[in-house]
Design a protein around this nucleic acid. Structure first.
Length: 780
DNA sequence: CGCTGTTTGTTTTTT
DNA sequence: ACAAACAGCG
């Protein structure tokens, strides 16, 4: 493929993005506008046209899956070009052997040297090089075998500190919210000491104290949490100009995908690397250097994780020329949508325009209008699931070109997958579920990984404690307490005690046999880290600990399921070994800690995809079911009293709608099981925010007399018509609130036209509302 | 020390 | 409805 051909499949805006060489460029890329194409083509173009060395390119993606895909697309671009150059043939015309040869050559000379990955993945790699040069402001240090603690590990640590060390009530200081507070502090770049300075009340001071202890504990374990993987590099870059300079020189061309979902720390990383620490407004050393970000403020859906889309909106002020939109040279808008039918796109555009916080843009359809959107009002979540089943069957029957892999069902919360799964199992529809319980979160998998972590990092006490008595070796809580006390008194990591026979014998007494057996296994495999591949270490651990044998003797279905998962873990290590340049134990552990379930989604597998709306970002499907459009569920009840949070929910809805290529089905239930109780449900406000002329619904067709009266009877009684009563509210009445859902009246204030009521909601506690504006309805 | 039955919280989204 | 955490007993 010649260079002109290469750029020929691009529209003018895409082409401008791809041809961008040095300096800053913001690509505002609407859903389905070909942003991945812009990114991959640009990387190829940098290497091919501008002779940029691949090792000078850093590309940040949002998921590992996106990184993988980007690599393979770039590989394909080069393969196509070289096929033509060397053989004068199209890539597809080459035989298998030639293809393999060429792919492996391209991998070795180009792809291998690119730094493509997530923020967390890339910067954990940076830390493996340089973390030993870092010291935090209290003098804490780490070494390069550091463990990466996942959420569960961190929460356990917080709980330990709250309950054991500080002797506080964990009801009052819920470990989860304390952990969240700490995470927020880290995302703002605040150290424990800096955070403490801002606290005026008791609670804040306690949290600051927990934070300090938490940081000590991480340090003692030689461990970092997810936030540290970003924050530590920022601090390291700020305190060590030489280290920063090295990485600044290395990464001359930086590309960031999904820029709207970057947080402050991630922005700092980018800013530091681009400018070498100079203020970005005065920075102008752009020779052989670029920053290229792609994003869409309308698809910003991660603010709960401290993402801040104003970072995207400020890009022009930070790095750009700050000219008006039609004059600027540092922004390109991709506004043509190649994915969705015009009807679907019109609905999405209409919905998102109700947000106040956005960059104005309208996605222009390139495809014809297609079928209307269909809205299904279900009796309950089971009916909703059966509707999906019946539609899938019908569409497959009528369209032979479709298969199960062309369908996806998207929902707000993971818990909603259950009834859909049940219906699919009954109907024998193949499905894959993305997310929910991650593979690496399963107990048996975490256990084996804990062994590996303990082996790789002797200071990782959390992992040691997890498996010191798993499987059972007669080491109980008392023994563990004694060992920990001993370690504490000597001021050494627990492992130092376990590794010393005489200490163990004195401290553990009768239980010392089990402890010593445990220590021996760890020691044996620690000695093999350098010499044996990861698979052998895992299988060795499983052997020596008797973990699988124990499960097999139990013989229950559950135990056998666990054995299966352990087998899968062994397979995963094998695959890791095959796919990676340096498959060391540390690298495997990092990839395990940072992998998400999303990464396993296999395209081409003929199964319906089930996932949350968040997980669906970046994906597309011919037919999409967007389910559970009910007030309090979607938008989530936690967003209801915050207009900006509702805007984020609306963006999430926008993301869901724009996943669909051919057809979109929306559904909501009138009644849904929640915590085991049936609760009436009100349709989501988002349904009313879509253009009605683009939507067909089952209620409308049913009125025409197509179905039995079963649902028809119920219809007048339920929602849609929210006639608010003005008087007659009584304590004890059960009511539906438009936003908060079902509750019970606990007080009535005032009377006549100035009345308000207090309502107790199961999850929200008590709220006082004005029945007139709240659209309150009594349930008989 | 380990098992059992009871209580409790869980459902926002995730690197 | 269901799982994890917890208390109390052998």
């Amino acid at each position: 493929m010649s260079n002109t051909d290469f750029l020929a499949h691009l529209n003018p805006s895409q082409r401008r993005s791809v041809e961008h060489y040095c300096g800053a460029l913001l690509v505002v890329a609407g859903a389905g506008s070909g942003k991945t194409r812009a990114l991959t083509y640009r990387i190829a173009n940098l290497i091919r046209t501008h002779r940029v060395d691949p090792s000078h390119i850093l590309a940040v993606t949002f998921t590992n899956k996106a990184a993988k895909e980007m690599r393979s697309r770039i590989e394909l671009l080069f393969a196509q070009q070289q096929a033509e150059l060397k053989f004068g043939k199209a890539w597809g015309a080459l035989d298998q052997y030639q293809q393999t040869q060429m792919r492996s050559h391209i991998y070795k000379t180009i792809i291998k040297d690119l730094w493509v990955g997530t923020f967390h993945g890339l910067f954990s790699k940076v830390l493996r090089f340089d973390i030993e040069k870092y010291q935090d402001d209290k003098g804490r240090t780490w070494n390069k075998n550091f463990s990466i603690f996942d959420d569960a590990d961190c929460q356990g640590l917080v709980k330990q500190i709250v309950v054991k060390q500080l002797d506080l009530d964990d009801k009052k200081f819920d470990p989860r919210s304390v952990r969240y507070a700490i995470s927020t502090a880290k995302n703002k770049g605040l150290s424990p000491e800096a955070y403490a300075r801002d606290q005026n009340d008791y609670k804040g001071r306690v949290i600051a104290d927990v934070y300090k202890h938490y940081q000590d504990a991480l340090c003692a374990n030689n461990a970092l949490d997810f936030d540290d993987l970003l924050l530590v590099p920022v601090q390291l870059f700020r305190q060590n100009a030489q280290v920063l300079d090295y990485w600044h020189r290395k990464f001359r061309h930086i590309l960031v995908d999904e820029y709207q979902d970057t947080n402050r720390t991630q922005y700092d990383l980018i800013q530091l690397l681009v400018t070498n620490g100079v203020d970005s407004k005065t920075f102008d050393a752009w020779e052989h250097r670029s920053i290229f970000v792609v994003g869409d403020a309308d698809q910003s859906i991660y603010s709960f994780r401290a993402a801040d889309f104003t970072i995207l909106m400020n890009f022009q002020d930070d790095f750009g020329d700050s000219q008006a939109d039609d004059l600027t040279k540092t922004m390109v808008k991709l506004e043509e949508n190649y994915r969705s039918r015009a009807n679907i796109l019109a609905a999405a555009n209409h919905l998102i325009q109700q947000n106040t916080q956005r960059i104005d843009k309208i996605l222009v359809a390139t495809r014809s209008e297609g079928e209307p959107i269909f809205l299904y009002t279900a009796d309950n979540e089971i009916d909703e699931a059966e509707f999906i089943v019946s539609q899938i069957r019908k569409l497959l029957r009528e369209n032979p070109e479709l298969n199960h892999g062309n369908f996806a069902a998207l929902y707000r919360t993971n818990a909603q997958s259950r009834p859909i799964e049940d219906a699919f199992v009954r109907a024998q529809i193949p499905y894959t579920i993305v997310g929910g319980l991650k593979f690496y979160d399963r107990r048996e998998v975490k256990d084996i990984v804990a062994y590996m972590r303990a082996i790789a990092n002797p200071s990782d006490t959390v992992s040691l404690l997890r498996v010191i008595n798993t499987p059972r070796r007669g080491v109980g809580q008392t023994t563990i307490d004694n060992l920990q006390n001993a370690a504490h008194q000597l001021g050494v990591p627990l492992w130092e005690i376990l590794n010393d026979d005489t200490s163990v014998k004195t401290v553990a007494g009768r239980s010392s046999k089990g402890v010593l057996a445990f220590a021996e296994i760890i020691n044996k495999w620690r000695g093999e880290i350098e010499t044996r591949p990861v698979v052998e270490i895992v299988t060795g651990i499983i052997e020596d600990t008797g973990y699988v044998t124990e499960l097999q003797t139990q013989g229950t279905d559950e135990a056998l399921d666990r054995v299966q998962n352990i087998q899968e873990l062994v397979n995963a290590t094998l695959q890791f070994q095959e796919e990676n340049e340096t498959p060391s134990l540390e690298n495997y552990l990092a990839s395990a800690a940072l992998s998400s379930d999303l990464d396993n989604l296999q395209e081409g597998k003929e199964a319906v995809s089930l996932m949350t709306l968040h997980a669906s970002k970046g994906l597309e499907f011919p037919i999409v079911f967007l389910v559970g459009l009910e007030a309090g569920l979607f938008p989530s009840y936690r967003s209801l009293n915050d207009p900006l949070a509702v805007e984020e929910e609306r963006r999430l809805c926008y993301v869901g709608i724009t996943r669909a290529e051919e057809m979109l089905y929306l559904s909501h239930a009138r009644e849904r099981r929640l915590y085991g109780n049936r609760e009436p449900a009100v349709r989501s406000q988002f349904i009313g925010e879509l253009p009605p002329e683009l939507i067909n619904s089952n209620l409308r067709t049913k009125v025409k007399g197509q179905t039995t009266g079963k649902t028809l009877h119920k219809e007048p009684k339920t929602v849609g018509t929210t006639t608010s009563q003005t008087t007659g509210w009584r304590v004890g009445d059960r009511v539906i609130h438009r936003g908060f859902g079902v509750g019970q009246i606990s007080h009535v204030f005032g009377d006549g036209n100035k009345q308000s009521v207090a309502i107790k909601f199961p999850n929200l506690g008590q709220k006082i509302v004005d029945p007139k504006t709240a659209g309150l309805q009594k349930i008989e």
